[in-house]
Amino acid sequence: MKAKNDDKPWLVRLLNGERTVLAKAISALENETDEASTIISGIYPYIGKALVVGFTGSPGVGKSTLVNSYIAGLCEEGLRVGVIAVDPSSPLSGGAILGDRIRMAAHEHLENVFIRSLASRCHVGGLSRATARIVDVMDAAGMDVVVIETVGAGQSEVEIAEIAHTKVVVCSPGLGDDIQAIKAGILEIADILVVNKCDLPLAAHTVRQLKSMLSLRDESPEWSTPVVSTSALEGTGVVELTEIIKNHEKMSSNKKEGYGKGKPQQRVLRLLANSAADEIKKALLQDKSEEISTICDAVLKGEMIFSDAIQRLIKGSLPCKQ
């Protein structure tokens, strides 16, 4: 999107898609430096254009390889693609090995592709805390599609539903645990189900299993969740998947309430809610007042239930209380 005359130089460069500025902005958002809020307010008028596609599913089902094949097609169409690949942080050391690029080696050198590896930094939802903001800054930098690949930790990944327009849940044949995870929650968020490694034995069985699970789910009238068979390694089924993602986008952007691509209000609300939560947490942890310790004691002794304590804390900690 074209920058306005009074935009700051960094913003102009970001909107022009300058790789180095985008990368540094992502770092600032990820590390929540003091510059983060400047960046968020700067990009705010320019977000809401990119299609955001989430890929989730258990480790080992071939998400990275599938994302690699998916972005190949997008590149051929001349689209600009941003990829956010999240890998788990070690809970012990806080460090991480971010290896998703291994499977994306075929495209990582392309000018149209920007890949950023993120460590989950022990955030439980399967996505790094900063992911939503990073989606926005990639969006502002002119990415036509932003692909998010999650940690793949199973059922806790429902958080992606808040961020991605189209949620692709990937599984591979014969993994019992996988099916359990899908039953337990991921299925609810899936707009598209993929059975990857479809050349393996049991693939057809897994497809049938998923279809029968879907039949038990309440379907929306606009969208009936398809089950797509792919072999990311061989490239089969990927064209079909890309087409289905496109159809899903069309369907959702036709919906009245601005679901899909153009739902900036919701995204802003989400950003605000996240930031507010951060602020409240900061305020509470820094608060050394008598009231706080009274509440904590009451909870410890069982005199106050959790939900009441939370209500009191929120009310007490909001900056508007003065």
Binding site: S93, G94, G95, L98, G99, I102, A119
Partner: peptide, 8 residues
């Protein structure tokens, strides 16, 4: 405690 980007 470092974050390592590992490639092919």
């Amino acid at each position: 405690g470092m974050e390592v980007i590992y490639t092919a």
